[in-house]
Design a protein around this nucleic acid. Structure first.
Lengths: 146, 146
DNA sequence: TATTGTTATACTCTATAACTATA
DNA sequence: TATAGTTATAGAGTATAACAATA
């Protein structure tokens, strides 16, 4: 018998969908959509990125991201420049307004994470995060090899 | 400093996105999209459901699910009937073809879960699943109260 | 009046592939 | 030829709200 409630992809999707829907509502007041926050957070945490690195980091499809970053540039949230070394690659960086919004959202994001982790010990939190990383790495390895 | 790589929503989204994209490709050969699989799996595991229960179970928005289930009925994957007791509610059930496809995918799904859990012990797996459930419950509680 | 589900609208995401510019 | 990114297209998802049928 197939037990949906113990099926890992189901549990991850369910928790992730809840997190995403609620968090999107929390940050709507800042004028950014969830995918835009993902881009801002990635740039705030990791610095300016090539578009394709940003796609991997945010798990957003490259062609979707290309248009998303285009809209975000028009809103003055990010800047786009062709890098001098390799003129094919596009560097994406935070613009002043994007940085301001990211800084405003980060405390909300951290508070939200703590709500999600209510009743979960520091030790359990470390385990959970480490295991999620290992799941990701397993699938990443699958991508590269068989 | 904001550490994206230790931020729970990021880790869940990243693992979930990887799981979803790859699994969607694996089951495409069966002629069903990921959201369709979610509906079939929910019905296979939990039996026939009211549409709104199915929406909660699959984390699919009600209006999206309404149209999705409509398309799935046209493909003879599910049946829809107004329940006799309360004529407002719609019961969704597996049709023969939907059941056959679900049964065909379940072993693939279970194999895929084991790949995702490579190198993770049974004890760690139980912990991971329990913690994901607790995260979901924390957010669910947030939904109902403040 | 409240609930269950359907439909409409406008915008966004996804998959796929063709395309440009550069290497 | 391969890589980085852009653009086109069609189908599907999302948010929101209006709506119908039933309770």
């Amino acid at each position: 018998m197939f037990d949906l409630r113990q099926f890992l992809p189901y549990l991850i999707n369910r928790a992730g969908a809840r997190l995403a829907v609620k968090f999107a509502r929390e940050i709507a007041a800042n004028g950014v959509a969830l995918q835009e926050w993902r881009v801002l957070a990635a740039l705030a945490a990791q610095g300016s990125q090539r578009l394709s690195d940003l796609a991997r980091l945010t798990s957003i499809d490259l062609s979707t991201l290309s248009r998303l970053v285009g809209r975000m540039e028009r809103q003055a949230l990010v800047g786009r420049t062709r890098s001098d070394g390799d003129r094919r690659t596009l560097r994406v960086e935070l613009a002043a307004k994007g940085r301001r919004i990211a800084q405003a959202i980060i405390p909300t994001a951290e508070r939200y994470e703590r709500v999600a982790l209510t009743g979960i010990s520091a030790e359990e939190e470390r385990l959970l995060k480490g295991l999620l990383e290992r799941v990701y790495i397993n699938l990443d390895r699958l991508e590269r090899h068989g």
